[in-house]
Simulated assay, not measured.
Amino acid sequence: MTAQSWHSIASGKPYPVTGLTSGEVTSLDQFLGDAEFTIDGEGGPVVVCGHGVPLEDKIRFHEKDTVGGKDVRVWHVSSGGSGFVAESIAAF
């Protein structure tokens, strides 16, 4: 099954991060700057592309529709009990 780049995402629900396109996730620092990662979405894997900046003990990640494009949604990426999680948040 191939990862989808877009489908329905529930706001406020933490999704497990299953990997980075550049390899295994070992640190939150890997989400800084331009990055692309995959989450375990409800309908299968979902690719999230965008740009991350540090925010206290997590990364604020702005998902883009294309490289340098329009914002799609904002995520908070953090360390979870058994790995990393990404949660779509309302950001105004």
Rank of each mutant, 00 (worst) to 15 (best):
A3V: 02
Q4C: 00
Q4M: 06
S5W: 05
W6I: 06
H7C: 06
S8L: 13
S11W: 03
P14W: 01
T18N: 06
G19L: 11
L20G: 10
S22T: 15
S22G: 10
G23F: 08
V25R: 08
T26A: 04
T26V: 14
L28H: 06
F31V: 05
D34Y: 07
D34Q: 12
D34K: 12
A35W: 09
E36Q: 15
D40C: 07
D40Y: 01
G41E: 08
G43L: 14
V46W: 00
C49S: 14
H51A: 10
V53N: 07
V53C: 04
L55H: 12
I59A: 12
R60Q: 13
F61T: 03
F61Q: 07
F61P: 01
K64G: 06
D65L: 01
T66M: 14
V67Q: 09
G68M: 09
G68R: 11
V72N: 07
V74G: 05
W75F: 15
H76V: 02
S78C: 01
S78R: 14
G83P: 00
G83A: 11
F84N: 01
F84T: 02
F84S: 01
F84P: 01
F84H: 02
V85W: 00
E87R: 15
E87P: 02
S88E: 11
S88M: 10
I89P: 00
I89A: 04
A91I: 05
F92I: 02
